[in-house]
Write a protein that binds this DNA or RNA. Structure first.
Lengths: 262, 262
DNA sequence: TAGTGGTCTAGACCACATA
DNA sequence: ATGTGGTCTAGACCACTAC
């Protein structure tokens, strides 16, 4: 039989472009995904902007459109990119109209988040501070390193419902003020994208039932005997770098934390 | 110019096989996905078994392997199927070795779920009953219809940690006994697969912080002032048919509910 | 009309598992 | 050695969006 020549094209030095493709022997589309991640991380494409078309990227990386597509598919499934048919592929942002408060899973018992309108925010405190051992561990810092610490109350329809404490690495978020947190009319994560170029792409939460201390119960206007949900969240930017520690106390008499399992 | 004939093959009456492919004009791979779902639902392939190879399925449905692959990809991403390279594609089951207790998100604060060993179960109650309005709504029944109601305590290392109340549609789970629940050495969901052929593929949870009543605090051996996590779960089998309502009370002094956001 | 992502096909080769 | 799923390519057509 006549042997058919392999279909593999002369694939020039595979990915001569700078940047080490992770484990060196991963599938091509994984390497492409890594390169796309680098471009996202470096800010080549900013939140809300569109990235080049699949064809353009295929030409740039010297691979087929299908390979680029598979890389983009994974990034889209991880919520880093958003595809819009006929328009292009866009860098995900916390400032989206219809996915606002992506990380907030507290829902009103009656009605839905949309009809409830945006939360009213009251900033209690926002100051530069030193990382405790616990905060340092969560943020990948050393104890005593600079952090921005903030406390605020979120209210829905005038009812204080969430008390939040935030800790952010001081070196990255230097200059963040209560004014900024209070002024921006949207998710804080969207403000951090805009003002500091840091995007939270993933988070872990540890949830417990607790009783508030005196100060907490006062701020939430509940009795100290009211059980509350404690939600400790660590948020990560690209490459699993922790960028925020947040502790929320949620009232769950009018709201509930909604989760989907599969 | 010479016009090139279209690449579309003579695709026989598209999917003459019985069963209405949802909205009639969905993508081919979605229709294939629907047919695969029917086979899963009808029990043609049972939990833990392998399904036919992609090539076989492609021949059966008269489509290309790539189209079958995309259908399987989606079912795998929804945890209905599990791919194993070199071996085949398998029907997911709650009896898996390494994904036991898929729906249980309560983790020990120190160590991990593996080192903790399996939970000890104590069945408090298991009897036939009538659906209250609330239970009926959750299970898609009418008030007063037959339900199996059960209550049990799960302990880790001898410490009672979870108090669960379960409600199951009586017509589907007729004959379920405390003995069965107690004897089966694994997740209850695996037992329900084996004994009743019902597989839970998805669930919703509503989480709150609550205080236990007298009976609950006794069963969990905590004071009535101990805040607990209330986790109300509705579990669904194929086609979003609700098949279980479960309310868990979790102690969160030694454990926490872990969630990942993206 | 042109450009984008979405679907579908076809065929080749690779990596892994089993016999 | 054989069969499975995994990767990669290539090209065609479809559906949506904007101009």
């Amino acid at each position: 039989m006549s042997s058919i020549p392999p279909t593999v094209p002369e694939l020039a030095p595979p990915l001569a472009a700078g940047g080490l493709p992770a484990p060196a022997f991963s599938p091509l589309y994984q390497q492409i995904k890594g390169l796309l991640l680098q471009s996202l991380e470096s800010g080549e494409w900013k939140p809300g902007e569109s990235i080049p078309s699949e064809m353009d990227l295929a030409a740039r990386f010297r691979v087929s459109q299908g390979t680029v597509r598979k890389a983009i598919d994974e990034l889209a499934s991880e919520n880093l990119l958003v595809r819009r048919q006929g328009k292009g592929t866009f860098v995900a942002t916390h400032a989206e109209q219809h996915v606002q408060y992506r990380f907030l899973k507290l829902m009103p018992d009656r009605g839905d988040a949309d009809t409830e309108g945006p939360a009213e925010r009251r900033i209690i405190d926002c100051r530069s501070s030193r990382a405790s051992a616990e905060v340092a561990r969560a943020l990948g810092l050393r104890s005593g390193e600079s952090v921005i610490q903030a406390r605020r109350v979120l209210a829905f329809r005038g009812v204080p419902t969430i008390l939040e404490d935030l800790w952010l690495p001081g070196v990255t978020f230097k200059g963040l003020t209560a004014q900024q947190m209070s002024d921006y009319p949207g998710p804080t994560y969207a403000m951090l994208e805009l003002e500091f170029g840091v995007r939270m792409v993933r988070a872990d939460e540890k949830i417990r039932a607790v009783l508030p201390d005196a100060e907490q119960s006062t701020l939430l206007q509940v009795t100290p005997a009211t059980p509350l949900l404690s939600v400790v969240r660590t948020s990560y930017t690209y490459n699993d770098v922790p960028m925020e520690l947040r502790r929320g106390l949620y009232r769950t008499d009018t709201h509930h934390y909604r989760n989907e399992l599969s």
